[in-house]
Simulated assay, not measured.
Amino acid sequence: MKQKLHLWIEDYLFFPNALQKIISFLLLPLTFIYMLIILTKRAMAKPINFGIPVISVGNIIVGGSGKTPITIKLASKYENACIILRGYGRASKGLYVVSLNGKILEDVKTSGDEAMLLANSLPKATIIVSENRVKAILKAKELGCKIIFLDDGFSKYQISKFNILLRPKDEPTNIFCLPSGGYREPKGFYAQADIELLEGSDFKRVISIKKDGVISELPAKTLLITAISKPKRLLEFLPKNIKMISFPDHYDFTKDDISKIEEEYKDYSFITTGKDFVKLEKFNLKNLYLMDLEIQIDEKVNFSLMDEYIESFKKGAQK
Rank of each mutant, 00 (worst) to 15 (best):
I209Q: 00
D202H: 15
T254H: 03
D212E: 15
P239S: 12
L234I: 00
Y251K: 04
L223E: 01
I225P: 10
K221F: 02
D202M: 08
L238E: 09
K210E: 14
M244K: 08
A227S: 15
I225Y: 02
I209D: 02
I209H: 00
T226P: 12
G213Q: 01
Y251E: 04
I225E: 00
I258E: 05
L224P: 10
D257G: 00
S201I: 13
K243P: 13
Y251D: 07
D249Q: 02
E199M: 09
P248I: 02
I245W: 03
D202N: 14
V206A: 11
M244E: 02
L235V: 02
K230Q: 10
A227K: 10
F237A: 08
I225S: 02
S229T: 10
E199T: 07
P239E: 09
T254E: 01
K211G: 00
F247D: 06
Y251P: 11
P248G: 03
S259G: 09
G200N: 05
K210C: 12
A227R: 09
S208G: 07
E217V: 12
S229G: 15
S208I: 07
E199R: 11
S208A: 10
N241W: 02
I228Y: 12
E199Y: 08
K255H: 12
K230D: 04
I228Q: 06
K240A: 14
F247A: 11
D202G: 12
F247M: 14
L234C: 04
L234R: 02
V214P: 00
E236V: 15
L224I: 06
K210T: 13
K243M: 14
L234T: 03
K255D: 15
D252A: 12
